[in-house]
Amino acid sequence: MQDASPISSVEQLYENHHGWLQGWLNRRLGQSADAEDLAHDTFIRVLRAPQQVRELRQPMAFLAAIANGLLINRWRRQEIERAYLEALAARPEGVESSPEARYLVIETLLQLDSLLIGLPARIRQVFFMSQLDGLTYPQIAAQLGLTVAQVQRAMGKAFSVCYASRFE
């Protein structure tokens, strides 16, 4: 049951709801170590913006929203890592990447993904097919049933988002 009295400090929020949050995450993840990590990360986020905690009337909803965002980010990261590792496995033998290079590529892919997340899925797909798979615009158009002009427009939108991010 949710407490109706306002929360006045991060410490009080932690004391009252850390156990609940960890259990909530554990039910979603099925792994207590990951649940502990995400509960910790949730409270790190709370500590970065303690003013949001003052007079908080729905602390469990507040914590669940933060933790859910972190959970989605974790799943997206795992999906990107999985796809990258599959691409590496498909490379010819003898072509190896260092752990540092793999880490940098994954971080770059995550940054690109977060930049492009606001775009429609088709535009993101076109962008990644061009930039990661190395396909030409006519090849992308043929695979997706688009015209080359549609592929060009999609790439223009994706590139404009990337370009604009350099000046934020």
Rank of each mutant, 00 (worst) to 15 (best):
M1K: 09
Q2A: 10
D3R: 12
S5E: 14
I7W: 11
S9Y: 01
V10W: 07
E11A: 11
L13R: 02
L13F: 05
Y14K: 11
N16T: 05
G23L: 08
W24H: 12
L29C: 09
L29W: 09
Q31D: 15
A35Q: 10
A35W: 05
A35L: 02
T42M: 06
T42E: 04
T42F: 07
I44S: 12
V46S: 12
V46G: 09
V46D: 14
L47T: 12
R48E: 14
R48F: 06
P50T: 13
P50M: 12
Q52M: 03
V53D: 12
R54S: 13
L56K: 11
F62P: 03
F62V: 02
L63K: 12
L63D: 06
A64M: 03
I66K: 14
A67V: 05
A67N: 02
G69E: 12
G69K: 10
L70I: 06
L71G: 13
L71C: 13
L71I: 07
I72K: 15
I72C: 14
I72S: 15
R74V: 05
R76Q: 15
R77K: 14
R77V: 06
Q78D: 09
E79W: 13
I80T: 14
E81H: 14
A83T: 08
A83D: 07
L85H: 15
L88F: 12
L88K: 15
L88A: 07
E93F: 04
G94E: 02
E96G: 08
E96S: 13
S98R: 05
V105H: 13
L109V: 02
L110G: 11
Q111G: 10
D113R: 03
D113W: 05
L116H: 01
I117M: 11
A121I: 05
R122I: 01
I123M: 04
I123A: 10
F127H: 05
F128G: 03
F128N: 13
S130M: 06
L132S: 04
D133S: 07
G134F: 11
L135Q: 11
Y137V: 05
Y137I: 01
Q139K: 09
I140S: 01
T147N: 08
V148M: 02
R153E: 06
A154M: 02
G156H: 11
A158G: 01
S160D: 08
F167D: 04
